[in-house]
Simulated scan of single mutants.
Amino acid sequence: MCSLDVGRGVQAYAVKRGFMVDRFVLSSLIHMYASCGDVAAARLLSNAVEEKGVVMWNAIITGYFKNGDWKEVVEMFKGMLEVGAPFDEVTLVSVTTACGRIGDADLGDWIGGYVEEKGMVGNRNLVTALVDMYAKCGELGKAWRLFDRMQSRDVVAWSAIISGYTQADQCREALALFSEMQVAEVEPNDVTMVSVLSACAVLGVLETGKWVHSYIKWKRLPLTVVLGTALVDFYAKCGCIDSAVEAFESMPVKNSWTWTALIKGMASNGRGREALKLFSSMHEANIEPTDVTFIGVLLACSHGCLVEEGRRHFDSMIQDYGIQPRIEHYGCIVDLLGRAGLIDEAYQFIRTMLIEPNTVIWRALLSSCTVYKNAEIGE
Rank of each mutant, 00 (worst) to 15 (best):
G310H: 09
F314S: 03
G310K: 06
H303K: 14
R312G: 05
I323R: 00
R326L: 13
H313W: 05
S316Y: 01
L299N: 15
G310D: 04
S302T: 00
V297W: 06
Q319W: 00
Q319I: 09
M317T: 09
Q324C: 06
I323A: 06
E308P: 02
M317A: 13
L298E: 00
L306V: 07
I327M: 13
Q324Y: 01
G310L: 08
Q319K: 05
H303V: 06
S316E: 13
V297T: 08
P325Q: 12
R311D: 02
F314A: 03
P325Y: 10
R326S: 15
R311I: 05
I323Q: 05
R312M: 11
A300P: 11
V307R: 08
D320T: 04
R312V: 05
V307H: 10
R312E: 14
G304N: 08
C301D: 02
Y321P: 04
L306S: 11
A300R: 08
F314L: 04
S302D: 00
F314R: 01
A300Q: 06
C305A: 11
L306W: 10
I327L: 14
C301H: 05
E308G: 13
R326T: 15
L299Y: 15
L299F: 15
A300V: 08
G304S: 14
Y321D: 10
R311C: 04
G322W: 07
R311V: 04
C301W: 05
V307F: 11
C305M: 10
P325G: 12
E309D: 11
I327R: 08
F314C: 03
I327F: 12
D315R: 02
Y321I: 02
Y321W: 13
C305D: 12
H313N: 07
D315A: 10
Q324G: 07
L306N: 10
M317V: 13
D315E: 13
P325T: 09
I323L: 14
G322P: 01
H303Q: 13
R312W: 12
Q324W: 00
V297R: 07
G322N: 12
R311Y: 09
L306F: 12
Q324E: 12
D315Y: 07
I323E: 04
L298A: 01
H303I: 03
P325F: 09
L306K: 14
D320Q: 09
D315L: 11
D315T: 07
E309K: 10
L299V: 14
L299H: 15
G310W: 09
L298R: 01
E308K: 15
L299W: 14
A300D: 08
Y321T: 03
C305P: 01
I327D: 08
Y321M: 08
H303L: 03
R312Y: 14
G310R: 08
M317E: 13
Q319G: 00
L298F: 00
V307S: 07
S316D: 12
P325D: 12
L306Y: 14
G304C: 09
V297H: 05
